[in-house]
């Protein structure tokens, strides 16, 4: 893959540089071309790449070439640090309401992984000793309710549904009453997939949100998303207000540049990643791991870290 050799390419760029004291603007410029291509091939949004390159350039110009590191490695080190810092540096956890039930609302584009993630999350919360309720608010997709019921049954989580003839707002309202009666301390609302440009359906989310006052609105984003990730995430966030992000399908081989795009456009933390279709496959998000993944160079980075 074009990317595995970012490190090699940077070596090439800096070939003549060995022994020189500091990185000049010209040295860095040539290196940044390679970094830029690498990030674009990882699907980081073009505009974010532009800003990012500026930041890294500012940091790299004038840097003294350290003993034991070649200039290429040094640039990668800076790139890596900046990537991590852009992605939030520390792990961010789910928050709970101090007046139960804690309500989470799952939202996102069609097919992103909302229903699957709702199930996984409910299953994991159950394992931690909570008593979650799944709520079927997707009345549009064929067999969406059945899908949630099957997932719920597999993990032993009750599913609240009212069929497809009642509005999702009404369903969510009744679900909260039911949760109170049944002493559920967590309520997970699975909503239908929708486009961020569909005004009617975005309004529906706003109405559900006003009804259930969720602790967190979780935006589910497919890790394979390309340049449009900023439009989608930015749009969901500005219209609805997003509190956290779940990035799915990272068990594939996508570089996941969308993580960076989504994070920088919303400034909301990525809370979980989906690493498969089973319950255990929902994992915490580590910004540093994501950075090496985007750069496609885990090994190189751990080497540099040791220096």
């Amino acid at each position: 893959m074009a990317f595995e050799n970012l490190s090699a390419k940077l070596q090439e760029v800096f070939k003549q540089l060995r022994g020189k004291g500091v990185l000049t603007e010209d040295d860095v410029k040539a290196a940044m071309r390679e970094v830029k291509i690498a990030l674009l091939e990882a699907d980081v949004n073009f505009k974010i790449v532009k800003d990012f390159i500026k930041t890294v350039t500012d940091r790299a110009v004038g840097v003294e070439v350290l003993q034991g590191l070649n200039p290429g490695q040094q640039v990668i080190k800076i790139v890596n640090e900046e990537l991590i810092s852009l992605m939030g540096s520390t792990q961010s956890r789910l928050t709970y309401s101090n007046r139960p039930p804690t309500v989470y609302m799952m939202v996102g584009l069609q097919g992103a992984g909302k229903t699957t993630s709702s199930g996984k999350l409910a299953g994991q919360l159950r394992k931690q000793g909570r008593n979650p309720l799944l709520v079927a608010c997707d009345i549009y997709r064929p067999a969406a309710i059945k899908q949630l019921q099957v997932v719920g049954k597999n993990y032993g989580i009750p599913v609240f549904e009212m069929g497809t003839e009642v509005s999702p707002v009404e369903i969510s309202k009744k679900a909260l009453e039911y949760a109170a009666e049944q002493h559920h301390d967590v309520v997970l609302i699975d909503t239908a997939g929708r486009l961020h440009i569909n005004e009617e359906l975005m309004q529906e989310l706003l109405d559900i949100k006003a009804t259930v006052r969720p602790q967190e609105v979780l935006l589910v984003v497919d890790a394979m998303t390309g340049q449009d990730a900023v439009t989608v995430a930015g749009s969901f966030d500005s219209q609805l207000g997003v509190d956290g992000i779940i990035m799915t399908k990272l068990d594939g081989d996508a570089r996941g540049g969308a993580a960076l795009s989504v994070r920088s456009v919303t400034n909301k933390p990525i809370k979980y990643i989906g690493m498969g279709e089973k319950m255990e496959d929902l994992e915490p998000f580590y910004p540093d791991r994501m950075a090496s993944r985007i750069l496609g160079m885990g090994d190189v980075l751990s080497l540099i870290d040791k220096v």
């Binding site: 990882a42 699907d43 584009l109 497919d222 394979m224 390309g226 340049q227």
Partner: peptide, 11 residues
């Protein structure tokens, strides 16, 4: 293929 997908679609 999903039009929302980026470079991974090639893979």
């Amino acid at each position: 293929l999903d039009a929302t997908t980026g470079q991974n679609a090639l893979q």
